[in-house]
């Protein structure tokens, strides 16, 4: 689509805007992102990453007791907002970070995957707490998954039961470090 537009522009001497009509407008807007990436990948990639890493919005899905410390981390003493991570957010369509806050039970696992699938790219996952990493204390429970690696690709593991808010913040900063070094796509 993008290539089509570019070629036709050259051959017929029309601008892109001329080709937009009510039928293809939506597709065009959807592809705008691709065009932008192609145009700015090299020179502005750093800027894209920079924008992403200071506006990580976690999705509001609490899965177990680690959410207490997640709440404390957004409280006034620890205040994760100064690192560009706002307190858990309602709409998952606008989020780009899943903080898995603890135990994933067999009932929650499909829901968690559903939430992850509905989020727009790019998206990152932080596994918070021993339970999310290996099952933790509940390694022998009949209803708990031994870690979330089986259902989500994890970027950063934050150990602890529960991790102190400082540890969570450190995990978030590690994620930012990782994003900084990624290719911006």
């Amino acid at each position: 689509m993008v290539d089509d537009l570019v070629i036709s522009k050259q051959s017929k001497g029309l601008t892109i805007i001329d080709q937009v009509n009510s039928h293809n407008a939506n597709v065009f807007i959807g592809k705008l992102g691709d065009i932008l990436f192609k145009a700015v990948d090299k020179p502005l990639g750093m800027a894209l990453n920079w924008g992403r890493l200071w506006s990580l919005w976690p999705v509001h899905i609490e899965t177990a007791c680690c959410s207490v410390e997640f709440g404390a981390a957004s409280g006034p003493r620890y205040d994760v907002e100064r690192f560009g991570i706002i307190e858990a957010f309602g709409s998952l369509r606008q989020c780009d970070l899943v903080v898995v806050q603890g135990t994933i039970t067999r009932k929650m696992a499909p829901r968690l995957r559903l939430v992850y699938d509905q989020m727009p790219e790019p998206k990152y996952v932080i596994a918070m707490g021993a339970c999310a990493i290996t099952g933790g204390l509940y390694f022998d429970s009949y209803n708990v998954l031994p870690g979330i690696d089986g259902i989500l690709p994890v970027d950063v593991y934050v150990p602890g039961c529960p991790p102190r808010p400082e540890t969570l913040i450190q995990g978030c900063m590690l994620l930012q470090e990782k994003i900084k070094r990624m290719k911006p796509r």
Binding site: T63, T103, T105, Y138, D140, S141, Y142, N143, V144
Partner: peptide, 14 residues
């Protein structure tokens, strides 16, 4: 409910 059912009562028996 039941999204965080972790079977504490069963675990306690072990």
């Amino acid at each position: 409910p039941g999204y965080v059912h972790r079977g504490e009562e069963k675990m306690a028996e072990y």
